[in-house]
Design a protein around this nucleic acid. Structure first.
Lengths: 213, 213
DNA sequence: CTCAAATCGGAACTACGGTTCCGGATACAA
DNA sequence: TTGTATCCGGAACCGTAGTTCCGATTTGAG
């Protein structure tokens, strides 16, 4: 916790050696071929492992899976969290895009339905996403607060429009819906076969929030 | 993980010194007054702290709160998990009793409703209970598997009877309901004020599982 | 009051996960 | 081919949390 997260490492700066105020772009050199290859390998390994085991996996497991040493991993990502950020924010971004797409659906309630199903599937397939969204406490959420805001804002648009349509009740908050769906993911997750049952659970939530009678 | 959990300590055995087969109760001596007092203090402190902060609190925090040293704590409970067990199983027991009581309700669906509300309130007030029920993975659940079984069995009776009454849909599993309600607790928990909103969330779940139309 | 048994307290040990450091290997420009 | 800037690997280091150990203290029977 409370990590600095700034250039203690040679990330991609430290170019200018003398004459400070020259504002030319000093072409930071492309990165060696093997380094680039390793960067990719690490990213891919992290993606798989985080998806399967969540945030809690020891960092060296990722390194091993990628087939590189720990030192190498840390050369490319200054912190475990930095690596984690990379993966999760990509996934969050995709989710946000989906949300924006669903917003455009003429029938708001239908858009919401579509989105929640996608959301649930994503969260239950990618353990790391699930962790970021629910489990792990304040600190990890704070890290993605901007994206999280964008997501809930988008969801809230859908929700409000659905309420206006008279499709869902007006006394449910967006965050509630989100957490209810997370509950579904949790339930489905422990079964192993997260297939059909997840769909069913999300439908239950949808049934629960729709306008009575 | 994988703790022995058996008498590496002087818990309350080690009585017979010679002549093994004498089956008299060798009165293990009542425990000194101060020891008994400390035992109580530890239990009370653990109850409060676990309720507030969950399973993750360092053990020495509990000791400090109880006003005893770590050594003393370990004299009374051979393991952090042992202490944790004590607290959680008490709470689980109470929950099970409630479940059995609700089972007796003539109107099954109503009983279920009552139970779920109690359940939700308990889980959101006692962080440790919440942890044991949901969060923390396999290992911690295994520890309470017997009680958990008793609980879900009782719930399943209610559920089945409600289905027979035609009150709730027949394609929802008990565990699903449980996890949905846990989702509600999670949602309510982060607000701080877990009061009214929790009630509402549980009602949403109930609305979701009731027979359509 | 006296003393041994029981108990206390916390320093020290262990295990584990994140991070740093640096000698050795490698890529690639000249 | 050669030289060096860059990169690699993993041993070592640090902080955290659980647990053990043992000298100091306290209880309570005689």
């Amino acid at each position: 916790m409370t990590v600095d997260h700034r250039g203690t490492r040679d990330d991609a700066n430290a170019q200018v050696t003398s004459s400070p105020p020259i504002s030319e772009l000093p072409e930071p050199r492309p990165m060696r071929a093997d380094a680039m290859r390793n960067h990719e390998k690490i990213l891919r390994a992290a993606e798989e492992i985080f998806a399967l085991d969540g945030v809690m996996v020891p960092i060296d497991v990722v390194a091993e899976r990628a087939g590189v040493g720990i030192g190498t991993l840390y050369r490319h990502f200054p912190t475990k969290e930095a690596l984690y950020d990379e993966i999760v924010s990509t996934r969050l971004r995709a989710l946000i895009d989906t949300a924006h797409a669903c917003e455009k659906e003429p029938n708001a309630a239908e858009g919401m339905c579509t989105f929640l199903h996608t959301f649930a599937r994503q969260a239950s397939e990618k353990q790391d996403l699930f962790d970021a969204l629910g489990q792990a406490g304040i600190d990890i959420k704070a890290r993605f607060s901007d994206m999280l805001n964008e997501l809930t804002t988008s969801m809230d648009t859908m929700r409000q429009r659905s309420v206006d349509e008279g499709a869902i009740r007006d006394d449910v908050e967006t965050k509630d819906i989100l957490n209810l769906v997370m509950g579904s993911c949790h339930a489905a997750g422990y079964d192993g076969k997260s297939g059909a049952s997840l769909e069913r659970l999300v439908d239950i939530v949808l049934a629960g929030i729709k306008t009575p009678d």
